[in-house]
Amino acid sequence: MGKKKLTPYLLIAPYIIHFGLFVAFPVVFSLVLVFHRWNIISPMEYVGPGNFIRLLGDTFFWQSVLNTLYFILIHVPLQLLIAISFALILNLPLRMLGVFRAIYFLPVVVSGVVVTILWQQLFGYENGILNRLLTYLTLPRIGWLTDPDIAMPSIAIMATWKNVGLYIILFLTGLQTVPVQLYESADLEGATAWQKFRHITIPMINPTILLVLVLSTIGGFSLFIEPYVMTGGGPLSRTLSSVLYIYKQGFFFYHMGYAATMGVTLTAIILVVVIIQKKYVERNT
């Protein structure tokens, strides 16, 4: 009998050990790190709230937070809009829908590095496809990655292209749960297409909207590889994302305490943003 009681604990033992070593310890340790200055090699030096004071005055950090929020502000609505539009059409009784779905999903499975290297060429100033198209239409060229005001929106467009396929599928799944009877009774009352969309579809797929909102926001806060490869954070630090800045502080300068402080602060910011989103979506439906 004693042996039977032990079995579940043996089964979860790998999880518990892993949790202790790779989750609990790092979380607790990061709370120690924020009060220290440390480059891993020399002994830790206690600095009290020094890291937070430094953080408050670090314009690069706040710039990186603003850059990341700016990215999210463009990327998330764009993603929602495009994903819903494609999902609505893919939900119509048409042919070859499976093929289209598979094509839209392609960039989702491909590594972000591939997409970034590819779009770096598409965004090229002199000979990039996008600027050649603009020139062909006799429009002025755009400094997609070189104009400080445009570089981040460009990255947001690319990220949308990369990820939107996943969100199309999520919305499609959501749309298929809406009972057809709701539309039929709305038809009987003479509702327009827009009214049906606004008063039936939107409320019914509300959980999906929230999910997509939260997932793509958290994804936005993880922005790293795109600016790392494309711009290195420039021009004028306007594409310096928070994770890229943490990376630079941690792994270029070995400011472990300070980088951990930024990680903790960023976590708090993410939490606040996600809670606000949840409240907002729940209230508006």
């Binding site: 958290i218 941690g250 472990m256 990680g263 976590t267």
Partner: peptide, 18 residues
Amino acid sequence: TMSLPFQLTLIPQYILMV
């Protein structure tokens, strides 16, 4: 654990590896 952002544990996990 699933809702913890990786930004929180990135630095201490690296130190653990070292």
